[in-house]
Nucleic acid binder design. Structure first.
Length: 544
RNA sequence: GCCCUGGUAGCUCAACUGGACAGAGCACCUGCCUUCUAAGCAGGGGGUUCCAGGUUCAAGUCCUGGCCAGGGUACCA
């Protein structure tokens, strides 16, 4: 609908021989007083035409050719807005359109033929995922879903490193517990991982291997067993939230197939690195960042995270993605400019990379802050949270806010499961509709028989249909903004429109014509709700 | 010090990315269930959009300078 309004405007401008601005804004009017759609076109043209916006608006409106049965009227208001009012027929046709396209209603083709990769979570396997990881997991997954809805071919990737210092400590922590299980009294060093999961892993090793490794703290069995167990746990957690990765990419392979070295060689060729104090530095200042950074440490003979990150992102370019999306927590904020600078130096189109930074989740318990650390094991795991409130609530809660905002998650509130939860409001709408159809089926109503939607004319019905049509617009907006919270906001709006309709308009009545039409409208509404919830990975129950 | 991100109703947040009168939920009042689910609907109170300037037809939104909060600023990731 919105595209059709846009086309009409462009056609009219061409007819008047007015140059068409590169970006015409047509938006949904905020209040019904202003019609269904509005444009600021006349005001934008003021500068070009050097005329009063009201006059321009009038000229445009007078030149608009009446489009069969699409627009009811066009108005000019105060500073120069042009407001479009659609006919009832236009709105009623939305229902037919939804029913026809069904589970595909709302899909766009903006990304047709394009490949995109979304990297997210990427937590090293040192322990269970925390609530903090949860936000990123759900955000990344929803972004991937948004892109799928826009026709992209999407790959979800999890990048990790099992070779660093953290992982060494993980192995040692496991060894230490193992030793304790076999009778050692040595207390656990403070900087070791204290979590209960370490004890379980050690227990298993002790049971299967006995005391074979009692004097061998560096044996790979500790680190490897821990890594395996932790990863299984992480994957299970993600599975519980309906999150699935296409690939787990291990940093180590970058070393194994020589990509790390290759980056250094190529940097050398273009004179982007130099040696100082025995370390290798990247000339960041020559490639757009504030300072030069170390790529290879001299103190311990190994790379900083920057080098493998550059090599890793290089593979993303080599793998031919049209769009590359990195989802990071705010703590990683400082890391990516250097990586981008490095890639730019290597002549890659870094504008294909889209970095999404989300702020932290602060966990509170009855208003009191809960500090979290994997090491100290005083965190609440994502699994525990999902057990308490359920997948739908977890997912919805994490994406209902803008990624840039801090997220307060009150555990006590989540546990009470009260009306506080906006997810229920949405799901309630789907359940109500299902309930209507249970009754319709019981009565054997054949609402598909003679379709006549012209009887849908109440304020609530028209508004509901108008809102249904918005779904596609929202999906397309999200293709650029990558903000799942816009889907959530839209669904709230749709649910409200439905609940209002529900309370004002009795669906199944003695009037057969109205009953049939309203059933079709309810069906269309359920389709859009389900589609939208599917984009968020939230279920649409038939009963509550 | 410098760099990011926030600051909107008592609380938690929206606001179509510069549009018209800043909107929801919770909380607080008042109504509505013998009819498809009251986890709902209708109505009410509640605002200097942190402060001060600026840009323009138009600023919560953009620019400059403050104040507050969080994150970053390593040869940690």
């Amino acid at each position: 609908m919105i595209n059709k309004v846009m086309k009409i405007l462009i056609k009219t401008l061409q007819k008047l021989e007015i140059p068409v601005p590169e970006h015409i804004l047509v938006e949904r009017s905020r209040t019904s007083e202003h019609g269904h759609f509005a444009t600021n076109l006349a005001m934008v043209l003021t500068k070009v035409l050097r005329k009063n916006p009201m006059i321009i608006a009038e000229e445009i409106v007078n030149a608009i050719e009446p489009e069969e049965d699409f627009i009811q009227k066009v108005e000019v208001k105060k500073p120069g807005f042009i407001n479009f009012f659609l006919t009832e027929n236009t709105l009623q046709n939305v229902v037919l359109n939804v029913l026809e396209r069904n589970e595909n209603f709302g899909k766009s083709e903006l990304g047709k033929g394009k490949k995109v990769q979304v990297e997210f979570v990427s937590a090293n396997p040192t322990g269970p995922l925390t609530v903090g990881h949860g936000r990123q997991a759900v955000l990344g997954d929803c972004i991937a879903r948004i892109l799928e809805w826009n026709g992209y071919e999407v790959e979800r990737e999890y990048y990790y490193n099992d070779a660093g210092r953290q992982m060494r400590i993980l192995g040692l922590s496991t060894y230490h517990r193992y030793k304790q299980i076999l009778g050692s009294q040595d207390p656990m060093p403070e900087d070791y991982y204290q979590g209960e999961y370490i004890r379980d892993i050690a227990q298993k090793i002790a049971e299967e291997q006995g005391d074979k490794y009692i004097n061998d703290p560096d044996n790979d069995i500790f680190k490897n067993s821990a890594e395996k167990a932790v990863f299984e746990d992480i994957e299970a957690t993600l599975r519980n939230l309906d999150i699935h990765f296409d690939r787990y990419y291990n940093e180590r392979t970058l070393y194994e197939d020589g990509r790390i070295e290759k980056v250094l060689e190529d940097f050398k060729k273009i004179d982007a690195i130099y040696e100082k104090d025995g370390a290798i530095w990247f000339k960041g200042t020559e490639f757009g960042v504030d300072t030069d950074r170390v790529l290879w440490k001299s103190v311990i003979n190994e790379a900083t995270y920057r080098l493998p990150d550059i090599a890793y992102h290089r593979t993303k370019f080599e793998r031919g993605y049209d769009k590359i999306i990195d989802v990071f927590g705010a703590d990683h904020h400082a890391t990516y400019p250097d990586v981008l600078a490095g890639l730019k130096a290597l002549n890659y189109e870094t504008n294909r990379i889209n970095v999404i930074i989300h702020q932290f989740v602060t966990l509170t318990r009855g208003g009191e802050k809960v500090k979290m650390s994997t090491r100290k094991a005083n965190f609440v795991t994502l699994d525990e949270l999902a057990d308490i409130v359920g997948k739908d609530v977890v997912r919805y809660f994490f994406i209902m806010r803008n990624a840039n905002s801090h997220l307060d998650f009150d555990l006590e509130l989540a546990v009470t499961e009260g009306d506080e939860n906006p997810v229920f409001y949405l799901q309630y709408a789907t359940a109500r509709i299902s309930s209507i159809f249970r009754k319709a089926d019981k009565l054997g109503i054949d609402y598909q028989k003679a379709i006549d939607l012209s009887v849908l004319v109440t304020v609530e019905e028209l508004n509901l249909m108008y809102t249904l049509a918005e779904f596609g617009e929202v999906v397309e907006t999200c293709e650029k903004s990558l903000e799942p919270q816009q889907i959530a906001n839209y669904l709230q709006k749709l649910a409200t429109a439905f609940h209002k309709f529900y309370s004002e308009c009795v669906v199944i009545s003695s009037d057969e014509k109205i009953t049939h039409a309203r059933l079709l409208l309810a069906k269309a509404t359920r389709i859009v709700l389900v589609n939208g919830l599917q984009m968020l990975g939230v279920s649409a129950p038939e009963k509550m």
